[in-house]
Computed example of a mutant assay.
Amino acid sequence: MSFRTLRRAARRGEPTCRCSPTRWSEEFLGALHADGQERAADAGTFRRSPLTRVRATGLLAKPWWLPVFEGLDPYTDLTATLRKVTLVPEAVFPFPYDWRLAVAYNGAVLPGPPC
């Protein structure tokens, strides 16, 4: 099943896998395991040749692939609350990052403050 098909099936409450959970996790989540190049990545890696196999494009939102957590949205409320209690709301800058990679790599990806 493609990711798009899985997402549609999950939204309709249909089974998204007709195989054992172990096989499903190996096939579906196995692709997300960091490979050797990703495990070795550091700030210099980003400057020389950024990794492109998996790219974080936004904050984690409602996980369509895990229907048990329907409605769970960990960052929207947190971001809004931090902006309310901060002297300069613009200082709260949500930053999507690839949690599988080293902090040094993700730190190099982090852009400067918005102007």
Rank of each mutant, 00 (worst) to 15 (best):
T81F: 12
L59M: 15
S20D: 15
A31K: 08
L59S: 02
F93M: 14
R55D: 07
L29Q: 07
A9S: 11
G44S: 11
C115N: 09
P111Q: 13
W99Q: 08
R8F: 05
A56H: 01
S25W: 13
A31T: 09
L101A: 00
G13Q: 07
S49G: 09
T57Y: 04
P74W: 05
M1P: 01
T76R: 13
F93E: 14
L82Q: 05
F46P: 00
R55T: 15
G112R: 10
W65G: 03
D77K: 09
P21Q: 07
F93Y: 11
R23C: 07
T79L: 06
C19G: 09
T5H: 10
E90G: 13
T81H: 11
V103T: 09
L60C: 10
P89C: 08
K62Q: 15
E70G: 09
F46A: 01
L59F: 04
T22C: 08
E38Y: 03
Y97C: 03
F93P: 01
T76D: 10
A91R: 14
V85I: 15
D77L: 12
R83G: 02
V92T: 03
P15G: 06
P50R: 04
Y75G: 01
G71H: 05
F28H: 02
R100D: 02
G58A: 15
A61K: 09
L66K: 08
V85R: 13
G44I: 00
A91E: 11
G112H: 08
S20I: 06
A80E: 13
F46L: 04
T81L: 14
D98M: 03
T45K: 00
L101T: 00
D98G: 00
H33L: 14
F28M: 05
C17E: 10
W24P: 00
A91D: 14
L82D: 08
C17I: 08
L29N: 07
G107H: 10
R11V: 07
A43Y: 02
L29G: 05
C115D: 12
S2F: 10
V103R: 12
D77G: 10
S2M: 06
E27H: 09
W99C: 06
E14A: 13
T22G: 07
A108C: 07
K62E: 15
H33R: 14
L51I: 07
T52I: 09
E27Q: 14
L59D: 00
G30F: 04
E90A: 15
D42F: 03
D98E: 14
R8L: 13
R18L: 13
T5S: 12
